[in-house]
Structure formats: C-alpha cells, structure tokens
C-alpha cells in the first residue's frame, strides 16, 4: 500500500556529501528501500528542493551559514524523527576547524591574502552569510538519532535505517560507533 510508506527527506548542509555517498554504498538495499519508503527529497537521487512533511528527516553536514540554519529548522519542523548522519552533523566535524579563527579573518585570508590581486571577499546577498562558529546540528535543533562516522559506513547507515523502519530509535553500540 503505497500511501502507507514512510516518507523520507535527506539534506546536506556544509558537508562533503560523503555520508550520502556512503549511503549509496548500501548497494542493492537501495532497491529494497525504494519499495519500503518514499523519498520526498534527497539531493543525491532527485531534484526536489523544497522539504515537505515527512516521517524521517536525515541531515548531513555542519551548520556553518544562515542557509544551513534555515534548512535545519525547516527539516525539524517537517519531520517526526530527525537523524544526524556523520561527524559533522553529530558533533560539528572537520568544519569546526574554522572555529580557531574569527570569520572576518578567515575570509580575508582566503580571498585576499592567499589569492590573486583581483580577488575580493564575496558579499552578494545571494551568498549565505557564515555563522560565527561552525556547529553540530544539536546546537541549533533537537536531534533524535545520532549516526556518527566520517563517513558512517554503509553497514551502519543501513542498520540505522532498518531499525527506524522497524519502529525503533537506533543507538550505535561500541562495535558500530566510529568517529
């Protein structure tokens, strides 16, 4: 009964898409999954930008700009269970290495000091503004499921999804947990 399938949305904030790549590594399970759930939006498999009401919302990446904040909040509002995929979403991950410097200083260094003469610090209003610190998801919204890993292995991603589909909130034990 197609209409009873749980709906899933996935989104990528400031991440490398590695978690989504790792998700695609579940191989033939994608096929099973396509029968078990309905994807509402997911940038790696479909071209839908708007997040609508879903049962499971999955997020990869760190919160580093105001667009990330907006997307995260929208996802939280629209899903019942929010899953953080990967170290970035769970803890902040590698992006937090920018937290050692002030944002202005970083932009200056990247676009002026370490660039050619014509380079300027981008300030187009279409470009999202960086937050003062790079943050893990749960510093902005509530997270229900944590699947850390950089990236989490396909097995762990699959385990998490299977548990969710069985109606449980997965928690990784010491054999599955990796940073």
């Amino acid at each position: 009964m197609a209409e009873n399938k749980p709906k899933v949305a996935t989104a990528c904030m400031c991440g490398c898409s590695g978690c989504h790549m790792s998700f695609l590594d579940v191989d033939e399970f994608v096929k099973d999954l396509a029968e078990l759930v309905e994807f509402q939006s997911s940038h790696v498999i479909m071209d839908v930008k708007e997040i609508e009401k879903v049962d499971i919302g999955i997020m990869e990446g760190t919160i580093t700009n105001d667009e990330n904040v907006e997307v995260a909040k929208k996802m939280r509002e629209n899903c019942d269970i929010l899953v953080a995929w990967g170290d970035c979403a769970c803890f902040g991950g590698i992006m937090t290495m920018r937290n050692f410097e002030k944002v202005d200083k970083i932009l200056e260094e990247c676009y002026l000091e370490k660039s050619d003469e014509e380079s300027v610090v981008p300030d187009d209003e279409l470009i999202p503004t960086l937050t003062d610190k790079a943050k893990g998801l749960d510093e902005i919204i509530d997270v229900d499921v944590y699947i850390p890993g950089c990236p989490p292995s396909a097995d762990v991603i699959r385990y998490g999804l299977e548990k969710l589909l069985e109606g449980e909130i997965p928690k990784l034990d010491k054999d599955k947990l990796r940073y």
Binding site: C90, F91, T96, F100, G136, V143, P148, K171, L172, L177
Partner: peptide
Amino acid sequence: LMYEHEIDRFEFPRMY
C-alpha cells in the same frame, strides 16, 4: 573508551 561508553553525542560545547 569513547566507543565503549557509546558516546554518540556531546553534552558540553567544545573549547577549541
């Protein structure tokens, strides 16, 4: 030890 204690989220902010 972090794995053994199943630490999958943080309670405290990091200090950098």
